[in-house]
Design a protein around this nucleic acid. Structure first.
Lengths: 190, 190, 190, 190
DNA sequence: GGATAATCGAGACGGTACGTCGAGTCTTTCC
DNA sequence: GGAAAGACTCGACGTACCGTCTCGATTATCC
């Protein structure tokens, strides 16, 4: 009997969050401002989301996520694949929205580590999984040493990307090359 | 001619910042709370520091900084040296204060990228320099490939440490081992 | 649609103002103190009143006002009537609250002449009107000279009362007698 | 042996007070502003004056005081004399500085009745004395009834002037005429 | 002609209040 | 019952003056 939650409202709040994120940065976003921007009452926001961070999480889940949208290619050439993928990620972080989103994710995590960890799991998890899978394929093909921990490696890429986003200093071609080069040699089969 | 600035007050504010950081996290720190904790008037804080972040910066410059206090050893064994250093850094981030400080640094950077970059330069810079120096020594000794960019490598370590601090998931022995292992093989001479 | 303004809060702020006025005097009244005393948030006060003076004005409009409560009697004896009325006014100013209110009115006026003039119009106006009316009646009865400006006369009484309130030196019987005596003779019909 | 108090400084503070009074009104005057304006240190002000009001008092004692500078004329015509004097007083209150000074006096009194009473005694006293003297002369000449209390009468004039200053509505020719007319008839000998 | 002692400028300092902002919660009315 | 509108409490913001407190640096006097 009760009136169902309005999907339109939900979308307009998430959209407002995405816009605000790019425009002012996560810390500067206020629930009040979001409500005004989305033409929704504060109460409605508080009814459906427990925190600003939760809105961010939902907004990211539904919007384009830099990195998430970049699946690791799987040609026969591991080196070229990683290079291509990492380049795509860097390009994503070079876009204003991509940078804003990544930073927002970092900001949330410093404020609420538990939630941050959950969000991270949600977003970085699949990315890491993609890399691990690609490495495993390469290992099966004999291109990668048997004792390499693919998880550690995936995290290394993610850490570098995250750090560069934090500093707002996206990696250029050369640095991508250098990072991939070092790591690849580190894991290449004897 | 006027009464000189009180060094005692300065120290007590910085100490209050360090205590608050460990106890509540950077975002939860309040100028008002700081003033109360340091038994100093708000006005005095506003007179000498332009922002919460500036206090943090100064507090870090004068207090123990995790990582900064850990110089890279320089024995004949590059592998052992990096392992020892990175272990020390990880241990620093496993301490509550070390973790709090690192997270605070990250939080500041998301809120004010320019200032964050400056602080980062100030703190991460010397650390990176230490690593670069160690690598160069190793290169001179023929242990490292000539074409390796030591700067990229240093940043890789810092990025990993930073990312782990962000997630509050300090590296254990095995992960340190894995990271150093991969990187080392990646740069090892022929 | 929104929740309506709370009348209870409004009353409790006005009451706090009246209490504070009598206890400490207008200048010593603080918005912060008012909020605490009325158990209301500062924000709520700022939402509804633009200034301390505005609260005072409203408080007076609704509370007992010395002088306002004393209508000019209208027996056949003009002299007795004015004497009785002016005695009542003096008695009002001899009460602590009456004195506090009168002084507050004066204090507001020195700080914000425009507002003060408005308040004065609001409070002194009706009083003056009462006197003017009584004089006109007397004039019709042939007790007062035709050329007397009743307005000037009314203001003379009010000015004396105001001045005595300012100095906190309420008029005693004899002075009331003297003032009324002089004025009455001055206006008596030939 | 010690260096004596600087008269120059004293004067410059008093001058600053007079200027500030006319420019912003008594309540808006701050010790800090006074110090800046007079190019004197706060400490020096606090050394020599216990309060803002004390500075005002001293400034008035030495500066031109409206009314104080207007002695009651003493020709043979009491009516003309009072008219002339009260006109002069009204004119003084019509000047910006005169008005500012009178209002400042009133403001001080509402804030600190005791000090206000003292200042009033100091300033209004001589004026009242002048009127009383003139009335007494007139009485001796048989122009004024024997039973008239000259003090009450003097205060009546002062009260009217004060009230008009408070409201910032200086008396014009006609009102001066009306006030003096009523009072004079009220005290005229049989 | 120094020594000396209070004056003075500058401004640091602990307070108190200012007026504003946003976080969350609550209440009313409309749909 | 969902939603808009906005009243309400709370806590922090950054600012302005208050009155007190050091600090040199600067004079007048008096030996």
């Amino acid at each position: 009997m009760p009136r169902p939650r309005s999907e339109k409202i939900r979308q307009s709040v998430l959209a407002a969050m995405r816009r605000a994120l790019a425009a002012e940065g996560y810390e500067a976003v206020t629930i009040e401002g979001l409500a005004a921007e989305a033409e929704v009452s504060k109460q409605t926001i508080y009814r459906w989301w427990p925190s600003k961070a939760a809105i961010l999480g939902e907004a990211l889940l539904e919007g384009a996520l830099p990195g998430a949208a970049d699946p690791v290619p799987a040609t026969a050439d591991l080196s070229a694949d990683l290079r291509a993928w990492f380049t795509a990620v860097s390009d994503g972080l070079a876009q204003p929205e991509g940078l804003a989103v990544a930073r927002a994710l970092i900001a949330v995590t410093t404020a609420d580590p538990a939630l941050g960890a959950a969000l991270n799991e949600r977003f970085a998890g699949p990315i890491a999984a993609g890399i691990v899978e690609r490495i495993d394929t390469a290992r099966a093909a004999g291109d990668v040493r048997a004792d390499v921990d693919a998880t550690v490696l995936a995290e290394q890429f993610i850490a570098v990307a995250s750090y560069e986003a934090l500093l707002g200093r996206p990696l250029d071609r050369d640095r991508v090359e250098a990072v991939v080069g070092i790591v690849l040699r580190g894991i290449a089969a004897g």
